[in-house]
Amino acid sequence: MKHRTSAGLAAFALSSALVLTGCGDGDDSGADASASPSADASGASAEPVVAGGVCEPEAPSAPAEIPEPSEADQKAIEGVTVTGAAGEEPEKVEFDTPLEVEGLAVNVLDEGDGTELATGNRVTFQDYIVNGSDGEQTNPSTWDEGQAPQSFTLGDPSYQVLNEPFAGLHVGARLTLAMKAMDGTTQVHVLDIVESESLPTRAKGTTVKPEDGLPTVELGDDGAPTVTIADDYDDPEELVVQPLIEGDGAKVTKDDEVTVQYLGCLLDGTSFDSSWSRSAPTSFALSGVIPAWTDGLDGQKVGSQVLLVAPASEAYGEDPSAHELGGKTLIFVVDILAAEPAA
Rank of each mutant, 00 (worst) to 15 (best):
K2F: 06
H3K: 08
R4G: 04
A13R: 12
S15C: 12
S15R: 13
V19H: 11
C23K: 08
D28K: 05
G30Y: 03
A31K: 04
A31L: 04
A31S: 01
D32F: 03
A33I: 09
A39R: 15
S42L: 14
S45M: 13
P48Q: 07
V49C: 02
A51P: 05
E58V: 10
A59T: 07
S61M: 11
P69I: 05
P69D: 02
K75R: 15
E78I: 06
T83S: 13
A85T: 13
E88D: 14
V108F: 06
V108C: 07
A118W: 02
F125V: 02
F125E: 00
I129C: 08
E136W: 14
T138D: 14
T138F: 14
G146T: 12
A148K: 11
P149Q: 08
L154R: 00
P157Q: 01
Q160Y: 04
Q160A: 03
V161T: 05
N163C: 05
N163Y: 02
E164S: 04
E164F: 07
E164R: 10
F166E: 01
F166H: 00
A167E: 13
L169M: 12
H170Q: 09
G172Q: 05
R174E: 12
L175A: 10
L177S: 11
L177E: 11
A178R: 12
D183K: 06
Q187K: 15
I193A: 14
E197W: 00
S198I: 05
R202T: 15
G205E: 02
D212K: 10
T228N: 04
I229C: 02
Y233A: 03
D235E: 13
P236C: 11
P236T: 06
E237I: 14
E238W: 12
D248Y: 06
A250Y: 05
K251I: 02
V252F: 03
T253H: 01
K254W: 04
K254A: 03
D256G: 01
V258N: 02
V260A: 02
V260H: 02
V260C: 03
L267F: 13
F272C: 07
S275T: 03
S277A: 05
R278K: 01
T282E: 01
T294S: 15
L297K: 14
D298T: 07
Q300V: 03
K301G: 02
L307T: 02
L307I: 01
A310F: 04
S313L: 15
E318Y: 12
D319R: 10
E324P: 03
G327Y: 06
G327K: 06
K328E: 12
T329G: 10
I336V: 15
A339L: 03
E340A: 10
E340L: 06
A342D: 12
A342L: 10
